[in-house]
Simulated scan of single mutants.
Amino acid sequence: MSFRIRAARQDDLQYLYEMAKLTGGGFTNLPPDRDALRGKLTRSEAAFARTDDGIEDELFVLVLENIETGEVRGTCQIFTQVGQRWPFYSYRIGTLTKHSEELGRTFRAELLNLTNDLEGCSEVGGLFLHPNERAGGLGMLLARSRYLFIRAHRARFADRVLAELRGIIDEGGGSPFWDGVAGRFFGMSFQEADEFNAVHGNQFIADLMPKHPIYIAMLPDSARQVIGLPHPTGRAAMRMLEREGFQYEKYVDIFDGGPTMIAPTDRVRTIENARDAEIAHIGEGSEDVLLATGRLTDFRAAYGRVSAEDDGAITLDVAGAQALGVAAGDTLSYIER
Results as ranks from 00 to 15, higher is better:
M1E: 12
A7H: 10
Q10Y: 01
Y17C: 13
L22P: 02
L22R: 08
T28C: 04
P31H: 01
P32N: 03
R38M: 09
R38W: 12
T42V: 02
A46H: 06
A46M: 10
A47P: 03
F48N: 09
F48T: 09
E56D: 04
D57E: 10
D57N: 08
E58S: 01
E58R: 01
E65S: 03
I67S: 05
E68K: 10
T69F: 08
V72W: 01
G74D: 09
G74C: 04
C76P: 07
Q77E: 11
Q84C: 12
W86N: 12
W86Q: 03
W86H: 04
Y89S: 15
S90L: 05
Y91G: 07
R92V: 08
L96S: 10
K98E: 01
E102M: 04
L112H: 09
L114D: 05
G125F: 04
G125Y: 05
L129E: 12
L129G: 13
H130I: 14
N132R: 12
G136C: 11
G136Q: 13
G136P: 11
M140N: 15
L141K: 13
L142A: 04
R144H: 12
F149P: 07
I150K: 13
H153D: 13
H153V: 14
F157H: 10
L165E: 07
I168Y: 01
D170Q: 14
G172L: 03
G172A: 02
G172Y: 05
G174T: 10
P176G: 10
G183P: 12
R184V: 11
F186M: 11
Q191W: 09
E192P: 06
F196S: 07
Q203W: 11
F204M: 06
I205A: 06
L208Q: 03
L208H: 03
P213S: 09
I214Y: 05
A217Y: 08
S222C: 14
A223L: 04
A223Q: 04
L229S: 11
H231D: 11
G234I: 12
G234A: 06
A237H: 13
R243L: 05
F246W: 05
Q247G: 11
Y248G: 14
K250F: 04
K250C: 02
V252Q: 04
D256Y: 01
A263N: 02
D266W: 07
R267E: 15
T270N: 14
I271F: 03
N273S: 02
E278V: 11
E278L: 08
G283I: 02
G283H: 08
E284Y: 06
S286I: 12
E287I: 06
D288S: 05
V289M: 06
V289D: 02
L291C: 00
L291K: 02
T293P: 02
R295H: 13
R295C: 15
R295F: 12
R305W: 02
A308Y: 07
D310Y: 09
I314Q: 11
D317T: 01
D317P: 00
V318C: 02
G320H: 03
Q322W: 00
A323W: 00
A323G: 03
D330G: 00
